[in-house]
Design a binder for these strands. Sequence first.
DNA 1: TTGTAGGCGTTATCAG
DNA 2: CTGATAACGCCTACAA
Lengths: 337, 337
Amino acid sequence: MSTIHDVAKLAGVSTATVSRVINSPDKVRSITRGKVQQAMEMCRYKYNALARGFVTKKSNTIGLIVPNINNPVFAESTLGIQDYASQHNIQVILGNSYYQQDLEAGLINTFLEKQVDGLIITTANPKGGQIKSLLDDQFPFVQLYSTIKKGPVSAVGIDNYKGGYEATLHLVELGHRRIGMIAGRFNVSDRSFHRWHGYKKCLRDNDISYDSSLLLQTDYALSGGRECVKQFMGLKKRPSAIFCSNDYLALGAIKGAREIGLVLPQDLSIIGFDGIQIASYVTPSLTTIQQPAYEMGKIGADVLFQQMADGNKPVQKMLDFKLITRESTVQYKVPNK
Amino acid sequence: MSTIHDVAKLAGVSTATVSRVINSPDKVRSITRGKVQQAMEMCRYKYNALARGFVTKKSNTIGLIVPNINNPVFAESTLGIQDYASQHNIQVILGNSYYQQDLEAGLINTFLEKQVDGLIITTANPKGGQIKSLLDDQFPFVQLYSTIKKGPVSAVGIDNYKGGYEATLHLVELGHRRIGMIAGRFNVSDRSFHRWHGYKKCLRDNDISYDSSLLLQTDYALSGGRECVKQFMGLKKRPSAIFCSNDYLALGAIKGAREIGLVLPQDLSIIGFDGIQIASYVTPSLTTIQQPAYEMGKIGADVLFQQMADGNKPVQKMLDFKLITRESTVQYKVPNK
DNA sequence: TTGTAGGCGTTATCAG
DNA sequence: CTGATAACGCCTACAA
């Protein structure tokens, strides 16, 4: 593998000049530039970005940690981040935390060792030690899908509390009084936790007493929703509607409900959260709270780049979400036995 | 930011020793080791993997190029790759080619500059220039979701021809004679192309004459399937079954078919390809050819690591796929008007 | 406009 | 078991 030294020798110039034609071609006379470029071709010169990063102390790489790239929401925001990053000639290293704090901490550490210029984290624990240590080091990072509205850390997300409230309100307005919630585990997703709070508040505002048997926490996965719905329907006093704290859970719930013989949406209304694309393609199509995942990725990347550029003061951006009413939620009807 | 020099000074040893306690702690006396470790803590030493890579000429990073991380199959194999890689302390840089050759070429180039140790590519063009140049440079890489069964390039995939054949055969065995195919564009996905060949062969083997109006090429996206099915149903002689060359297309087709008033699966049988998880959660649940995406990722990574380790001779692995029969395909019935 | 030379943080090779 | 020192490929003052 040839280096700028080889090129320099071949072109009869110094390595500095070669470096210049690479980084600021206009600063070198066009004749010299031509010679150098020709020499580069001749020895099939390949630029070494690592060596560059080593001296400039910029790797032009950012680290991205998502809970699980398998979930379409995260794939979507990842896409937004990547598109934005590649526009700026930045690469992204991807890591999955699987909603586990220790894995997340490990990833952060590895990425730091790799000298990433910044970090975008969809964290399992916004107040965890690694976040704090990042802050102490003044390392540029932003939290994505965040519930944080102020403070020292940059964050982009939506108001999950409000989202939970609106989802529940939608069901209430359809006449439902007995409303279950299938939620991602609180100890692992504060998003889920906030949505639950919104749910509770909405119930209270509408004089529906909170029933703790109507909350189920589970893994964020299709299968989780599927099992939980069955558990709900085993109850003496079944819910007539369910709020699932993400779409995957909701899709699973639809499946599970069918498996125990329910007719949807008549027998059970289901609302999701996220607004993944596939949710509009299933039957019944899923009513959901849609968050702008792709845009969130873009904005998250943008915020990060600000931080990287001028060590800006922390920024929080709360994006708008939208209730998308589809077929999976309908007016409450007293069941006829 | 402190370096091993600082640590060395503080501990009263040489940098070589510090390096040793990092890389092979057992090669240094435990007393010295203790001193060094203590010193590392004191100056909050952070290891610089970039510098290491610079001298060892290993970045411990591989590049992964997928068409679009948004498609659950690719997310799934990505997960397989990542799990395998992180087990070996390797990070992965992700890039989306969007099925475009020039973007793919650009990504390969950038990754090479970044000194990745290897490349996993789900390519838009298995015979393109960048692949050949990789080969010339003896650079370790493997093609994923490949249709290649022999030759100089390492590849992991399934037999798409056979897959297309079996999908079609399933429909034929259900009595369908007029079978449409919605395919990803051939100029961009040779997988799709091979599946189509299998489709054609199967028709011929069953004395069904090939009708070119029954092939539609489109973008690999939900919307593509949705539009194409409508186009098919506008035909004078409609198909009674459709083979979609991936599940996203099929899910889109289901949606589209409903929108024009068809009752599924009675009015139209639909079979997909890939076996993404969500396909079993929709209604009607999707019959499909399931390929082991996660495993493919793992195996792909494994093959790559072989290449990286001992510049092994090229390896091709054809994995097994499986026809999963679900609700979306049913026995052909003469339509009653 | 171009060249010289030092340095970035780590590892590897030899001695000791 | 430990230390000195020369790389690695590139960038960037500074000098010419």
